[in-house]
Design a protein around this nucleic acid. Structure first.
Ligand SMILES: [Mn+2]
Ligand SMILES: [Mn+2]
Ligand SMILES: [Mn+2]
Ligand SMILES: [Mn+2]
Lengths: 219, 219
DNA sequence: AATATTTGTTAGATAGATCTAACTTTGTAC
DNA sequence: GTACAAAGTTAGATCTATCTAACAAATATT
């Protein structure tokens, strides 16, 4: 069985693969906060357990076994976040650090029970998909709000950044998933947008923020 | 901060202190499933952090700091067991192994929230007291059922053994905490007792079982 | 009291996860 | 196409948690 340390490597490998396609040693090093030699030796280790494919000086890729293992950890992480928000009353900005620890618990029934109590959710509180119990995750490709043309109306469905800083920013602007947003205008100089939501307030959102808001069109 | 390993040593030290008064290296060794030299070196380690008092060839005792640290881990363990039973629908025989892992999570709000949701319970699903958030635990000294005289009526309030084997045995006899029991008779040869509960069935319980059932008198 | 058993300690080894320093390979810029 | 910078590797050290083998102290048995 993989140690917590190994599990953290696999999970970051899994997330970086989906975000950027390729994963190299220096990226892992900075994401994990450990030195490159440490990553190098751990990767050799994971290779011995057939969890990754690796050749000297080439990017690291997860094996099928590694992908499934990683997906099941991500599943535990996201189910935990959902449970903390929906069943225990935490804010979406508070749950990541707790889930980071709970994801390493080995107790299948514990997570099955969470899943049941939550009604088998398919996304976490930040809109990220929850892999199923076989480790299959649907790839959701949403638009950035920054790519939407003025006059259009969309629904906020997920976030490309779940850092607590960003989540607190969204709290301060009363932005929540599921909200309908209408793009009133876009400033050509800095790409900032004026957005109104649900007939109430309207806010100016910088390009940086709009790039992190993932939306789908109102059908 | 103490590692999970150190936390497990402290917790067992805490429990053994309450059960037997003294704690020696070989007892720790067998309870933890590690060799005596391993315990010896870990105890020196805990001593360096002022968590235990220790002199060569003498029993180990927790320092005040160690007692409080241990009590707070026991608190997390027992709150978790209570949460799993009362809020997640687990049986009392299923929760110990999960709590053994969850107790090492560092997230005060997580356990405070459990506590609130449970209505600030004072005992766990096996009747063991839950230390308060300052690490103070009330010492409950109940009678053994085996010490009760025939004809008397008592309430089952706690267990001196929470192993899943024993809990499954209790399940099979439909014994639950809070039940009123009446001692019908006691066999002088083997100290077994015939006990009736709540007017329904009556069961013969061996001495071994009666010693593990903690009761208080019906007032 | 002498001996045997149990309990505890010391020494030395190993495995996992990490580091720094030094070196090598790969990729980029001129 | 040489030279520089960035990325990656190797070697060697450290710290934690564990083990076994050998020895020592405390306790129990006869
Ligand atoms: Mn998260
Ligand atoms: Mn983690
Ligand atoms: Mn327990
Ligand atoms: Mn534990």
């Amino acid at each position: 069985m993989a140690s917590s340390t190994e599990e953290n490597y696999l999970k970051i490998l899994f997330n970086l693969t989906h975000e950027k396609g390729e994963v190299n040693i220096s990226e892992l090093s900075s994401q994990l906060g450990v030195s490159m030699p440490t990553v190098n030796s751990m990767i050799k280790n994971l290779q011995k357990s057939d969890l990754v494919h690796y050749e000297k000086y080439k990017p690291v890729t997860l094996s099928e076994k590694g992908k499934k293992t990683a997906a099941l950890i991500v599943r535990k992480h996201r189910l935990t976040e959902m449970f903390l928000v929906n069943k225990m009353g935490f804010g979406w900005e508070e749950v990541h650090q707790i889930a980071e620890q709970v994801e390493h618990i080995h107790a299948p029934k514990f997570f099955e029970r969470m899943d049941e109590m939550l009604g088998f959710p398919t996304v976490d509180p930040h809109g990220s998909p929850i892999p199923d119990k076989h480790g299959r995750m649907q790839e959701l490709h949403y638009k950035n709000l920054s790519q939407v043309k003025p006059g259009n109306q969309v629904i906020l469905v997920a976030l490309a950044d779940s850092s607590s800083d960003f989540l607190e920013f969204l709290n301060s602007r009363k932005l929540k998933l599921g909200m309908e947003l209408k793009i009133l205008s876009k400033e050509t100089y800095d790409q900032s947008m004026i957005v109104s939501y649900e007939n109430q307030q309207s806010e100016t959102l910088s390009e940086k923020v709009c790039e992190k808001l993932l939306v789908r069109s109102v059908e």
